[in-house]
Nucleic acid binder design. Structure first.
Length: 205
DNA sequence: ATGACGATTTACT
DNA sequence: GTAAATCGTCATA
């Protein structure tokens, strides 16, 4: 599998969010263990106009600074006092857009993911579909935190996004509204969430 | 300096 | 179905 080109990420976020479905995130831990998973669910967050975006009205703070990087960087943020979420920045530099990675189908390193995910939940009670079926779950499974914020996915060999051989057909992609953004009024109703039809690792029905 | 709240997950009734 | 967990960020003063 080949790493995605920079030009893949510099396109508009809605296009990239759709195109990321079926691609593979690969991460080599400091320990040497390799984790990987196929992207099965994404959400697009536009910048200035999008009321649900951290960059609404071109808001620019220390937290969301990564959104202003050139496409292909990681944007990781901490929320609810206990969770992290992993995004891939899209578009050109200073045009803040990002694609939230909401769910992965685990491919490699499942035992490590299960270890990272087992806290209150017992290790042997965790099914494969409990490992990465949500934005905060996949961060926990991969060990993503603020140390991964602003990483350039195009330059860091330990964290990259790869192109799987086969392209997804449109009939295998479901487009719907985003999760958890009710406050965003009209923007909450826009079709900016994408997932692979009938994939068991998607976060919510 | 202070207060409200969140691009979530989990356990419990 | 509802609520707790838990704290950094942001807006207001």
């Amino acid at each position: 599998m080949k790493r995605l080109n920079r030009s893949f990420y510099t396109k508009p976020v809605t296009e990239v969010a759709r195109a990321l479905l079926g691609k593979v995130i690969r991460y080599q831990l400091p320990s040497g263990d390799v984790l990987s998973g196929m992207i099965v669910e994404t959400e697009a967050y536009l910048g200035a106009e999008d009321k649900a975006s951290h960059a609404y009205n071109l808001r620019r703070t220390e937290r969301n600074e990564a959104m202003y990087e050139k496409g292909g960087h990681a944007y990781v943020y901490f929320t609810y006092g206990l969770h992290h979420c992993f995004n891939i920045v899209t578009g050109e530099k200073d045009d803040p857009q990002a694609c939230l990675i909401r769910a992965l189908e685990p491919l490699a390193g499942l035992s490590v993911m299960r270890e990272f995910r087992s806290g209150k939940i017992k290790r042997d009670k965790l099914k494969d579909r409990d490992l990465c079926s949500g934005p905060a779950k996949l961060c926990q499974a991969f060990g993503f935190d603020l140390t991964h914020n602003r990483i350039d996915l195009y330059r860091h060999p330990e964290l990259e996004v790869l192109c799987a051989s086969n392209e997804l057909k449109d009939e295998d992609v479901v487009t719907t509204t985003r999760v958890g953004v009710q406050y965003a009024e009209a923007w909450a109703r826009k079709p900016l969430r994408f997932y692979i039809s009938n994939n068991p690792h998607v976060s919510v029905k």
